[in-house]
């Protein structure tokens, strides 16, 4: 990572330590989401094997059954790099610590995790329609993860549309970082949007759950 930033002194108008904060927040939240919802990755396998029928026969919400079928604490260890980055970045950067910034950071951590979780749910819902759907949705899940760790000001137009608003990745780490650092942000993404992450989280969940529900109703059954 150091190598990537070594030659470029400022990325998208940010310094290295500022980018480190974007990366840290995004990575910690994504790792948390991955721990809770990452197991939805195995949905295509269930669909292919036709073993999903069994989940329909149990009196719990399908989504809950799928995510709890394997909550892996091992996945949490992946958060360590992000956590280290975040702690170092919070320490190195010049942040005006106040109740507002602490509150903002806490809110960001919760809402960003929720947004990444919602992306997993959306991707899972899409598996019901798509053949080899994982390849398609991974572009958004892991593409989104990667995009979130970057300052959104360096994104190109299509990325801005997809990860700025449809899957609000810019809101998860970049914009909160701007707000924490007291920077204004680009005109299309003003820093005050950092206070609206709950709205973006709610939107993501509505979008994700709608897809999921649509997918569940579209299930074709496992044969037999």
């Amino acid at each position: 990572m150091w190598l990537v930033f070594h030659n470029v002194k400022a990325l998208g108008g940010l310094t290295f330590t500022q980018v480190l904060l974007v990366f840290g927040i995004a990575d910690v939240c994504f790792s948390l989401a991955d721990m809770f919802f990452g197991h939805l990755d195995s949905l295509p396998t269930y669909l292919r094997q036709g073993t999903l029928d069994v989940f329909y026969l149990r009196p719990q919400p399908l989504l809950l059954q799928l995510i709890t079928s394997d909550i892996s604490l091992r996945r949490l260890s992946r958060a360590s790099v992000g956590l280290a980055s975040m702690v170092i970045a919070l320490w190195l950067n010049d942040i005006h610590w106040s109740a507002a910034t602490v509150g903002l950071l806490a809110m960001t951590m919760i809402c960003s995790t929720a947004i990444y979780c919602a992306v997993y749910v959306w991707a899972a819902g899409a598996q019901f329609f798509l053949v080899n759907g994982a390849e398609f949705t991974n572009a958004f899940v892991y593409g989104g993860r990667y995009a979130a760790t970057q300052p959104a000001s360096v994104w190109n137009k299509p990325l801005k549309v997809v990860f700025g608003f449809i899957f609000p990745m810019a809101i998860t780490a970049y914009v909160p970082t701007l707000a924490l650092l007291g920077l204004p942000g680009p005109s299309w993404l003003p820093a005050w949007l950092a206070w609206t992450t709950p709205l973006f989280a709610a939107w993501s969940w509505i979008f994700g759950l709608a897809f999921w529900r649509f997918g569940v109703r579209h299930y074709q059954g496992g044969g037999g």
Partner: peptide, 8 residues
Amino acid sequence: KMLTGILV
């Protein structure tokens, strides 16, 4: 499967 809510 329709009786048990698996298929719509």
